[in-house]
Design a protein around this nucleic acid. Sequence first.
DNA 1: TCAGTGACTGACC
DNA 2: GGGTCAGCCACTG
Length: 110
Amino acid sequence: MESSNFFEKVYEVAAQIPYGRVTSYGAIAKYLGAARSARMVGWAMNNAHAMDHIPAHRVVNRIGLLTGKHHFGGTNIMQQLLENEGVRVHNNQVVDFDTHFWDPAEALKG
DNA sequence: TCAGTGACTGACC
DNA sequence: GGGTCAGCCACTG
């Protein structure tokens, strides 16, 4: 509701990741003013797993590595989801990560 | 209640 | 240039 909680904000940011784009845990954490709490973003994503409107597969680590793919119930579900959106993934890593990178600080700045 | 763990990151050596 | 350490905070046993 008020999104006063850190997790709530993480959900809102993650939910606004455009189609075919990806971002990093640190980027979200930094946008929320908690760059040191990138782990919390990861944990939030784990909780976001229950959220249907949270594209957690669009959130990867700072180098575009699909570190959380094992949390999708499958072995390469996360990769398939990204590839389905036009995001090339190779060796569990997003290809041209810098090109597909979506910075919430730039898109949601205000 | 205490201690360990984790979908990370930046700094240090 | 690559490996290691510490910090961050919530959840579980």
